[in-house]
Design a protein around this nucleic acid. Structure first.
Length: 339
DNA sequence: ACCTGTCAAGTCTGG
DNA sequence: CCAGACTTGACAGGT
């Protein structure tokens, strides 16, 4: 099994390269010249897109092919008071340059809309804003010229005191979206509410591929043990990706592998928090099992030290590979596991 | 240059 | 019905 590693949202190695610079609405609303204020927002977005390109170039220099784009590329993009503002045209060039780079380097780019994107909500205004947020992310992918292999990862949302009916409401409200948006989504198990089995059920019901977060699973396992995960659940998660590849007419698993998220607990007293770096051994344990049934896998690291944590994990993997012949280092950001 | 409270958005808990 | 926690990078406003 070939495993590619990626990182999320920003670089801790590049100096002065934030892709998430912003302006608060409070500041925006205090500016007298609204046109100038909007131009300022565009200029901030241009800086964010420029820094994103720097991060992508830096990634490829380290063989990293997977990156999660910041959700904050365009400040105030979906704010109520800026409904009339259509920022995409003015940023088209910069977005296209990003998309071209991603395609040329065969990278896997994605978004992860924040926790305001909740399709299980019973509140109509929250549903409207969730749609707005998802549409915003999809339009950014489209403006980059990226096809439906490139997706937005979301969670199911809250339980509102009745997880079962909230899960059903998610399926109902999500299914009502047009294919243009539905086909851009992956569903991930969360660390508090919807566990792996429940998320998989929703993913299967909506026909959406599922991202398995193994850290979330550790802190919110439900009744799922390691045996069932590897023998029953992982093959079903894998199948959600196979189904998507078939829909897109992709013949090889390499073209859209299943994706997992990995991170390590912040501390013994804060298991849910994310540590600076990723512990290699628990991850390796999962990978060795997955390697029995899977040919290609993409693993997104969600560590506070971002790309630095990725390079450190590769260091650790190199050392492990030295004394375990089942592990082979392929390049600066991918390994091969044979079990 | 550096520090501290604040920030558009949701949900959950507890009062 | 409302305040505070959750979580987090970056702003805003101060020294």
């Amino acid at each position: 099994m070939k495993v590619r590693f990626g990182f999320v949202a920003m670089s801790t190695l590049l100096e002065d390269a934030s892709p998430s610079k912003t302006m608060t609405y409070k500041t925006f609303s205090k500016l007298a010249d609204r046109e100038a204020a909007v131009r300022r927002l565009v200029s901030i977005a241009e800086q964010n897109l420029h820094n994103t390109l720097r991060i992508l170039k830096h990634s490829t220099a380290h063989d990293i092919q997977m990156y999660r784009l910041s959700s904050k590329l365009i400040p105030l993009a979906t704010h109520d008071e800026l409904q009339d503002w259509k920022p995409y045209a003015a940023l088209q060039q910069a977005f296209k340059e990003l998309g071209d780079f991603v395609l040329k380097k065969r990278m896997r780019a994605s978004f992860h809309p924040d926790h305001f994107c909740v399709f299980s909500t019973p509140r109509p205004e929250v549903l409207i804003n969730s749609k707005k947020d998802l549409i915003h992310h999809v339009v950014m992918l489209e403006t980059m010229g990226l096809d439906e292999r490139f997706k937005c990862n979301i969670h199911i949302g809250g339980a509102y005191g009745d997880k079962e009916s909230s899960g059903l409401r998610f399926i109902e409200q999500f299914s009502a979206l047009s294919p243009r948006y539905k086909h851009r989504v992956t569903l991930e198990n969360d660390d508090k509410t919807f566990n792996v089995k429940e998320t998989l059920a929703a993913a299967e019901a909506t026909g959406v591929p599922m991202v398995l977060d193994i850290h979330h699973h550790m802190v919110n396992p439900g009744d799922l043990d390691a045996d069932e995960l590897h023998q029953v659940i992982w093959p079903r998660i894998s199948a959600t990706w196979e189904r998507e590849r078939n829909r897109l007419g992709l013949s090889s698993e390499e073209q859209l592998p299943p994706k997992i998220h990995a991170s390590s607990p912040k501390s013994i007293t804060n298991l849910r928090g994310h540590a600076d770096y990723v512990e290699p051994l628990p991850l390796l344990e999962f990978l060795l099992e997955a390697a029995r049934t899977t040919e290609y896998l993409d693993c997104m690291l969600e560590a506070k030290s971002k790309d630095s944590a990725l390079l450190q994990l590769m260091e650790d993997m190199r050392e492990l590979a030295g004394r375990d012949e089942r592990i082979r280092i392929v390049d600066g950001a991918s390994i091969e596991i044979n079990n």
